[in-house]
Design a protein around this nucleic acid. Structure first.
Lengths: 247, 247
DNA sequence: ACCTGAACACCGTTCAAGT
DNA sequence: ACCTGAACACCGTTCAAGT
């Protein structure tokens, strides 16, 4: 007793004859994007997606392809939502503006950050952000290292968003674990665990502090990477001036 | 026609009567660890695990619990394989020694890095490494920031190992993508994509260079994070000497 | 307490048949 | 070309029944 098409009784009629809009690739990806926003990129099933466009699962295969192909199409849309800062900004200012928007966009589609962290976006979707991002690093003097540096920044950004995504889903579990860590705050024999316990206990005690935790963690991670790259850049310039003293 | 217990014909005999060793939690986790080493933490099924100890799936539930409980037990073993550097080393030397061993251990169990990156290890398993790792950062002067800094370093390490794990599984797909990026190396209108394309083309052309790619990427990421933290530490010390000029 | 054997409610994917 | 409706080969999980 399949429940997919809205009215299983009105069978054998074509979509147009019954007044339902024709299924297209675009409409399917629209629906998948919405499902991803609601429940996460990995948490909807092909049957749910088919039902969302009032069709059978095989219809999705016909118009788009298997589940992974749909996911890639969704990711292209998500990456397309990223707005790029002014291309004339110096590298650090450019990334200081860009990376916070990365978080806010990816957070709207839970699971997208993890996929992007591991595989990156499709080549076509990546071109605008990669070209200007790597371009800013090139202009700053990173040279052949620019792709490495870009990769570090985006991977770190995606990684911390992915952490946030996945821990939200397991909040109860995470609270238990928080209590577990907080219990160590009085262990004078384990000073490392004690400071950790103290900071977690502070989070557990103060909901306002806890609310901004992941945003602060993200900012900290991103800033330290940028600092590290800044130091590396200074190092590269020092090396350069050694080998080309006349320049 | 279930094929699990080795000889489906000799039914109704108890394990001991038929000379098969009793199933224990330890033996199940042993098998799961081995399966994880062979095919990855997320790529074995409960039925395969049961078959590996010559038992029915329900036996795993009886002795350990659901699939996720088994995975957590496996992760505890993996984290237990990490050997900690000399506790008296200064923070940077300690992490310079520790983080490469993190990569080599986690790489032996594909998928473990991703799980650890997102959820961290269980509290019990985490204590030794966290306590000394955060302890080294405390001793260096990171103060209350030490857990943040530790988190950044371990998350980055796990993230880049996870990237390596997952891209290996999709090597064909990744090669296609490499060609896609390499094609941009002559695009003078897109200077960022051009350097990226050039570096990818170099990898595609030279297998030796490609073999060490992820190790270099890992080292680069980890070193930039350490550099960033070093700079941050200098900043913290400068602030401290301002507020306590007599100290 | 430990294990058997089967079932349940899913899942992604495929396919012959209809229009 | 597009869609129907069902099937296939899985999956994690549960459970009554045996010993």
């Amino acid at each position: 007793m399949p429940t997919f098409p809205e009215d299983a009784g009105s069978r054998s009629r074509s979509r147009v004859a019954s007044g339902r809009p024709a299924v297209t690739k675009e409409r399917i990806v629209d629906a998948a994007l919405e499902l991803s926003a609601e429940s996460g990129l990995e948490n909807w099933t092909l049957r749910q997606l088919a039902a969302a466009v009032d069709a059978y699962p095989a219809v999705v295969y016909h118009h788009v392809g298997d589940r992974d192909t749909v996911v890639v199409a969704v990711l292209d849309r998500v990456v397309g939502e990223l707005t790029l800062p002014d291309e004339t900004l110096p590298w650090r200012a450019w990334f200081d503006e860009f990376l916070p928007t990365v978080r806010s966009v990816l957070r709207r589609y839970p699971g997208s950050a993890r996929r992007l962290a591991l595989f990156g976006p499709s080549v076509a979707a990546a071109v605008p952000t990669m070209n200007t991002g790597i371009g800013r690093l090139l202009a700053a003097g990173f040279g052949a290292e620019a792709p490495f540096a870009y990769n570090l920044l985006l991977a770190t950004a995606c990684q911390f968003v992915a952490m946030e995504d996945d821990r939200e889903g397991a909040m109860a579990l995470q609270l238990d674990r928080s209590e577990g860590y907080a219990a160590y705050r009085t262990r004078e024999d384990l000073p490392g665990m004690a400071v950790l316990g103290e900071s977690i206990a502070a989070l557990v005690a103060d909901p306002d502090l806890a609310a901004g935790y992941y945003e602060r963690l993200y900012a900290y991670a991103v800033e330290r990477c940028l600092d590290g790259l800044e130091q590396r850049l200074a190092q590269l310039k020092a090396l350069e001036s050694l080998t080309e003293p006349g320049q």
